[in-house]
Amino acid sequence: MSRLTGKVAIVTGAGRGIGRSIAEVFAREGASVVATSRGSDADQLGGRPGLEYQQLDVAKDADWQRVVADVLDRHGRIDVLANNAGIITYQPVHELTVEDWERVVAINQTGTWLGMRAVLPAMLGQGSGSIINVSSIWGSAAVAGGHAYHATKGAVRNMSKNAAITYAQNGIRVNSLHPGFISTPLTDAQDPEVNDYVVGQTPMGRAGKPEEIAQGAVFLASDDSSFMTGAELVIDGGYLAQ
């Protein structure tokens, strides 16, 4: 498999779950991958063929500037950004604290914006690039609670469309990826009743696997999707079709 041969990619939230799978599948497809996370949970990715690890708090502009400068210094280009890092809470509006609101917005929304802003100058200079912003089915539909998560993932959806039309003439494609319920450490830590409900509402009757999302990310990163920008790639077992 070599759909990403020669491409340089940055993947955020790569310590576990969907982000880790995206990083690993990108590398298998031939990309040089900089796998990032806020903590040290992805450092074991370093040393594998095509994979290296860097610490990155997506909510900090200084971290983005450091990582992007380093990648450009060593690789000379950035072809793909997979903005995957995210967190979720399930507080309804009247129970959501300012602190929790700001934390979710900082990581899910501001982090996505900072990532795009950091890599776009390089992509503009080379006249090409693919940005994949991971939203969610909850960027288009609702579940009880989850107010801040809905707000940020809906924002990611529309931020992606704006960037897509802004940079379409510059050879830069921007698409959003919308997973349904995926079995990851993030969802494993949720209330089992919430998980059972969402899986029960999924027409295919099961949770998705991280690699099923990663394969969609490969498509968006590759030249196979060369006429695709501003789109929403939904991988959700049929949930949003209802």
Rank of each mutant, 00 (worst) to 15 (best):
S136H: 03
A163Q: 04
A59T: 06
M116Y: 01
R157E: 12
V98G: 15
D196W: 02
G129H: 02
T89Y: 00
G145K: 05
S160C: 10
T112C: 13
H150I: 10
A141C: 10
V98Y: 14
L120V: 13
R103P: 05
R77C: 05
V199L: 03
A118H: 04
D191N: 14
A106Y: 08
T184G: 02
V198I: 15
G154E: 09
S130M: 00
I107T: 13
Y167I: 05
D79P: 00
R74E: 10
N108L: 11
K153H: 13
P203T: 11
A189N: 09
G200I: 12
I137T: 12
G146N: 14
N162Q: 15
D79S: 08
T202K: 00
Y90S: 15
V80N: 00
V194F: 13
A163M: 07
G127H: 04
G154A: 14
G111F: 05
E99R: 14
T166M: 12
I132D: 02
Q169W: 05
A69P: 02
V143M: 12
D188E: 15
V80S: 01
M159G: 11
I182D: 02
N175E: 01
D191W: 09
P192F: 10
A168Q: 12
Q201I: 00
N83P: 00
G125T: 12
W64G: 08
V71I: 11
A142I: 12
N83Y: 10
I172P: 05
S176Y: 05
I172L: 00
G115W: 01
G76W: 00
N84T: 10
A62H: 12
P121Y: 09
V194W: 07
P92C: 13
A142C: 11
T89C: 09
L114G: 06
G154V: 07
A69D: 12
V199E: 06
L177Q: 00
